[in-house]
Amino acid sequence: MTAVDFAAFVERLSEIACETILPFFRTALGAADKNVGGAFDPVTEADHAAEAAMRRLIMTTFPSHGIIGEEFGSIRSDAEFVWVLDPIDGTKSFIAGLPTWGSLIGLLHNGAPTYGVLVQPFTRERFIGDGGGAVWRGPGQGGELVERKLTTRLCDSFAEATLLTTSPLLYTEDKLAAFRRVEAVVRLSRYGGDCYAFAMLAAGHVDCVIESGLKTYDIAPLIPIIEGAGGVVTDWAGGSAVQGGDIVATGCAQLHVRALKLLEG
């Protein structure tokens, strides 16, 4: 897989996500519940259609590659190259008509996240990272597509920091207490965002994102974007975030150390 082939291929995956999902947004789209009897976990026809289309292209183009996807599970997850797909990260926001959702496309090489894209079809934005750098592509003031480098904000004090989480309702009681320790000392705390919260951290607009109970497909595609922009992302114990779980991301190493200490309590 050459660099040119790879760039063109990822671009096509991104276009498939846009072309498949956007016609469903802000329509009378119904949502099924994947967690009947538990907390509402919606899935839509757009989720299924987008992941199915992306999987078909991957399997046709790179039949030896593995895939980890939210909607249709895993195949060859121990392969050298494994694609990680979350067709709509933030389905609850999607069905509520809010634009804070995105399609996540990531690539693992020997288990390590090496490339990631967050596609937001409605705002025409893409956040792209390879760990060594990250860029944003989106509409400029005149509507033309422009590109700029992503850089996290260097804030080493929680007294000056902005914190995001998707929802306190997603935490168990003990983990919510840990999150509240961080929330108690920040300047500003906001809820909502899903994957878009991590994009805003990479873009330098917020300083810390904390989540609980993430899956590989929720976070692996975002790791190269966060790290490429200069940020740090780990689990709450300071280990690898690639398998998901309880995740904390910050704009700089100093703030990350402080976050881990507060979460540990």
Rank of each mutant, 00 (worst) to 15 (best):
M1P: 12
F6A: 12
S14M: 10
E15S: 10
I16G: 01
A17Q: 09
L22C: 04
P23Q: 08
A28K: 12
A31D: 09
A32D: 14
A32N: 11
V36F: 02
A39K: 14
A39F: 12
T44G: 04
A50I: 10
E51I: 13
R55Y: 12
I58S: 08
I58R: 01
P63L: 14
I67T: 05
G69M: 05
E71W: 11
F81K: 07
W83E: 07
I88N: 03
G90F: 09
K92T: 15
K92V: 15
S93W: 05
A96Q: 15
P99R: 07
W101H: 11
I105K: 05
I105L: 15
L107Q: 03
L107R: 02
H109L: 12
G111N: 02
T114H: 04
V117K: 00
V117I: 14
V119Y: 01
Q120I: 05
F122Y: 11
F127W: 13
D130A: 01
W136N: 07
P139T: 03
G143N: 09
E147D: 05
K149S: 07
C155G: 03
E160Y: 11
L164N: 01
L170F: 12
L170Y: 06
Y171W: 13
R187W: 06
L188C: 02
Y191L: 13
G193I: 10
L201H: 02
V209I: 13
I210H: 03
G213E: 02
G213I: 10
G213V: 09
L214F: 03
L214A: 00
K215E: 14
K215I: 07
L222H: 00
E227Y: 02
G228D: 01
V232G: 02
V233N: 02
T234W: 07
D235Q: 08
W236V: 09
A237V: 12
G238L: 14
S240P: 15
V242G: 03
G244R: 00
G251Y: 09
A253S: 13
A253F: 08
Q254E: 15
Q254W: 09
H256I: 14
L262E: 05
